[in-house]
Design a protein around this nucleic acid. Sequence first.
DNA 1: GAGAACGCTAAGCGCTTGCTCACCTTCCCT
DNA 2: AGGGAAGGTGAGCAAGCGCTTAGCGTTCTC
Lengths: 211, 211
Amino acid sequence: MDSAEDTVDGYRPWSEVTPDAARRLLVAAVEAFAERGYHATTTRDIAGRAGMSPAALYIHYKTKEELLHRISRIGHDKALEILTTAADGPGCAAERLDAAVRSFVRWHAAHHTTARVVQYELDALAPEHRSEIVTLRRRSDAAVRRILADGVAAGEFDVPDVPGTTLAVLSLCIDVARWFSAAGQRTPDEVGALYADLVLRMVGARPHPQK
Amino acid sequence: MDSAEDTVDGYRPWSEVTPDAARRLLVAAVEAFAERGYHATTTRDIAGRAGMSPAALYIHYKTKEELLHRISRIGHDKALEILTTAADGPGCAAERLDAAVRSFVRWHAAHHTTARVVQYELDALAPEHRSEIVTLRRRSDAAVRRILADGVAAGEFDVPDVPGTTLAVLSLCIDVARWFSAAGQRTPDEVGALYADLVLRMVGARPHPQK
DNA sequence: GAGAACGCTAAGCGCTTGCTCACCTTCCCT
DNA sequence: AGGGAAGGTGAGCAAGCGCTTAGCGTTCTC
């Protein structure tokens, strides 16, 4: 089911998870969690999707929650990487904001199955795992805020409330995972382009005022 | 816990639910579903919060899913009312869009407990209840799209992709329910004002071009 | 003032859950 | 050829689940 996602951006998801059986279980868990939610998913369902008996799950993972934590950790690492790459990249603030929103949204659309688990099942994590993930999210927030602050300082953006607008931009991108469907009309690229344009309008981007 | 919400906008939530015991159970279910999610909430937990035995729940509701359906129905009715009131109200397209976003966001923030259940537990509904709710959501979508189309026709807005922008506006507002916390710094009014401004920028609103 | 109706509880039924355990392969290493 | 990881299974345990049922006190009706 995830096969259409396999090579998006030349990135093969979950290739870092070994051995093969552990990866198959993890992919099965992503699909099940995304479809029905963490709490509504049974360990028997996950094992069944991976073509194994229920007991096989516990050879590779201590608990069902560890599966969720692994998924969440890998997903948040990827999300943070996307945002920091764009924030630290070349170009003016508007170009970096465009790149950040475009690639972040494209990832949420192309991997909406994974993204749904990553973004909406945070509360199911154990407290210590949750706080680890929250730290990563704060760093994502900081990356976007940095772009906005740079744009305001350079006179490129008109943003009265930088923290509030940062929150809104991230919220807009994240929610793509909730509504995006591969069966819909829009491709991830199209949604990324649309959202990049909308966000540049939100920050009142002016084309290179100092030139 | 919900007491701080009780009289927002002069609207006392759940006053339409009678008798008193049924309302107490429903309010308890809203809190529990919002905190832990539908599937992670037990009927014993709901009854306990309402100060009753587990069996008492089944005098007023046939199943746990009926509770969710009632909550979802009432919440979606309210959301649709807010949006259609703004869409059919007086003023130019920009004023109506401002009113729609402002009041819709304010409701999601002030009643974020309820809104979280309404917006994020849709998948837990039985198929026939789910499709009933989806119909209501399509009407909300139509209300916002109507404002945007009016603004474009009047030359007030610059929106290349009306359906896509409608989706983004609603998505932005809805996601407030996920991140808003009463413990945070912002009041529902402040978030409403911020978001109304951001959305007017998104649609490229010009102040009354025909005057 | 008898009797039905209502709102509620204590107990518990049948089932599913996350997870364990004893055992079985397969395969590599010496 | 022999031995021990590594990776898997079938059966099943204790706990918790949604929901039901028998019965109790109170209130309303005529």
